[in-house]
């Protein structure tokens, strides 16, 4: 109401103020912008550029050659399988948890929320460790599992479990505040109009939370494909069998196969870029994170 509304008008007003020291504020402004850009450049832009630069150091042929390696292919396959299992499960969990927490009042709700947040605060190594302690040879279920010839740790199920632990807050944390903010009115209206629970969810709730859901899912996916610490502890690093892409990067890197390591890294970087692009598009569509 009072005063200027947008960025341009604001800066126009500020610089029109009597006694406004244009010189100082311009210097401060450009100083801050420069500092910010240098900080980001050294920390983010240079390493990202380095990934592609090293990966392509020996030309495109060597770059694509890196992906011909059967172990690399196995790692990519394993990563995709893990994500394909983990992301849908966590999405399902996220929606259910958000529905339960946002739509109802019950005792122990804040405890539940704390539990959902917990994996974000736990060190990834600890996240892996707990599964080793549970399903490893000396773990609680270790002996029983061995008797029945089931392997969890140092095998695919362990990788999936650890990844699930690390990534499951993402969808739920995105949806809970969103659904709390949207309130219950429209759902209640739908139900009093005779709609059933499923119909209400798919026709009323889902369309309203879809951007938040997309947001949560892409973040969950990015973390699931890129998780290193937790997976590293439970996988046993059996080359070609239990190495996901990030683990494979480590192996290649330690073997001084830089082109190979950075080629795989470049793929994961592209994944991150795509994730950011989708995220930006979602935000453009009007979805605001709180």
């Amino acid at each position: 109401m009072a005063g200027p509304a947008n960025h341009t008008e604001l800066s126009a007003e500020l610089s029109s103020r009597p006694g406004h020291n244009t010189w100082t504020s311009t210097v401060v402004r450009w100083l801050l912008i420069t500092v910010s850009l240098v900080f980001l450049g050294a920390l983010l832009a240079a390493p990202l550029a380095a990934v592609f630069s090293v990966a392509l150091e020996k030309g495109w042929e060597a770059y694509f050659g890196a992906f011909a390696d059967p172990d690399t292919r196995a790692a990519i396959r394993l990563t995709l399988i893990t994500a394909a299992v983990v992301v849908p499960l966590n999405t399902l969990f996220g929606i259910t948890a958000a529905w339960c927490i946002a739509k109802f009042e019950f005792k122990g709700k804040s405890f539940l929320i704390t539990l959902i947040d917990l994996p974000l605060a736990v060190s990834p190594v600890v996240s892996g460790l707990i599964y080793v302690l549970l399903f490893g040879l000396n773990g609680w279920f270790g002996a029983w599992l061995q008797d029945h010839d089931i392997s969890i740790v140092y095998a695919l199920p362990g990788i999936i479990l650890a990844t699930m632990f690390v990534t499951f807050p993402y969808v739920a944390r995105e949806l809970i505040p969103l659904m709390q903010q949207l309130g219950n009115d429209e759902e209640e209206a739908a139900i009093t109009l005779g709609a059933g629970g499923w119909l209400t969810f798919f026709r009323v709730t889902l369309p309203r939370i879809r951007w938040g859901l997309v947001y949560g899912v892409i973040l969950c996916n990015a973390r699931a494909m890129g998780e290193f610490g937790a997976v590293s502890v439970v996988s046993g690093n059996i080359r070609g069998l239990t190495t996901t892409m990030p683990l494979h990067i480590e192996i290649l890197y330690n073997e001084y196969n830089f082109v190979g390591a950075f080629a795989v890294a470049s793929m994961l970087s592209l994944l991150a870029v795509v994730t950011l692009i989708i995220k930006t598009l979602v935000e453009r569509s009007g979805y605001r994170r709180r």
């Binding site: 910010s36 850009l37 980001l40 050294a42 983010l44 240079a46 390493p47 990202l48 380095a50 990934v51 090293v54 990834p124 973040l219 990015a222 494909m225 890129g226 998780e227 290193f228 610490g229 892409m245 990030p246 683990l247 990067i249 480590e250 890197y253 390591a261 950075f262 890294a265 994961l268 970087s269 994944l271 991150a272 994730t275 950011l276 995220k279 930006t280």
Partner: peptide, 24 residues
């Protein structure tokens, strides 16, 4: 653009940032 890029460390796998920082 800068605003969007801030989230990069969220999305970038830690192993990638690890080897990249080491190289730089």
């Amino acid at each position: 653009f800068i605003d969007a890029v801030i989230d990069m460390p969220f999305a970038l796998p830690t192993a990638v940032s690890g080897i990249a920082l080491t190289t730089v």
